[in-house]
């Protein structure tokens, strides 16, 4: 049976997504792991595009790929990560980590199984009317129905932002910072004094 273009695209994107996500946890080099995570985000955004959620798809790219992962990469590149030490506790911690992983898989299967996400439970949505813009629909939902949760989330983010700055704020004694306004306001007569003096040798 020949597949239509969208279905084929879905399988390509999801295959790359699954492989990239696996490589995030199996890659030996942490920088490679971060780049595979970027690839995973990129393919997830492609899947959202297939669902006709173009605003969310591009938001995923702008926020995660464009900003968050850049800083991730930045930090991972700067760190001197010792892979041997990271791997040390693998077998001794397996008795705890293994069952938790299995539990999580069971939970995910229970939630995302065909019973709750199958074609019967989630039928294909009706085709949107002409002129429908999901950017606009999203904006209406966020700024009318969900305005308080949305504002609350932004205030929490702001608090986190200020906390991060405050935690790192310390006055260094060797700080040589200058005030640019003062620098610009400097005139020649403040710095240089021209002295008229007779020559000392005849």
């Amino acid at each position: 049976m020949p597949m239509d273009f969208k279905t084929a695209l879905f399988y390509i994107l999801s295959t790359i997504l699954v492989i990239a996500a696996l490589r995030v946890v199996t890659a030996r080099n942490p920088v490679h792991a971060v780049l595979f995570l970027v690839l995973a985000f990129f393919n997830a955004s492609g899947l959202w595009l297939l669902l006709q959620a173009e605003f969310l798809a591009i938001a995923l790219i702008v926020v995660y790929v464009g900003a968050v992962m850049v800083l991730f990469l930045f930090v991972v590149m700067m760190l001197d990560i010792n892979l041997e030490r990271l791997r040390q506790g693998f077998w001794s911690n397996l008795w705890l980590g293994g069952p938790i992983a299995v539990l999580m898989v069971i939970e995910m299967v229970a939630v995302l199984s065909a019973r709750s996400f199958g074609l019967e439970a989630m039928p294909e949505p009706a085709a949107p009317a002409a002129g429908y813009s999901n950017t606009k629909a999203l904006g209406m939902a966020i700024y009318t129905d969900y305005v308080y949760p949305f504002e609350l989330a932004s205030v929490i983010l702001l608090v986190a932002l200020i906390a991060a700055v405050v935690l790192n704020l310390r006055q260094r004694r060797d700080n040589k910072q200058l005030n640019p306004a003062e620098q610009i306001a400097i005139k020649r007569k403040d710095r240089v004094r021209i002295v008229s003096m007779p020559s000392e040798k005849e």
């Binding site: 591009i58 790219i61 702008v62 790929v65 464009g66």
Partner: peptide, 8 residues
């Protein structure tokens, strides 16, 4: 928005 995403 697409352009913002691409340039970033």
């Amino acid at each position: 928005f697409y352009i913002l995403g691409m340039t970033s």
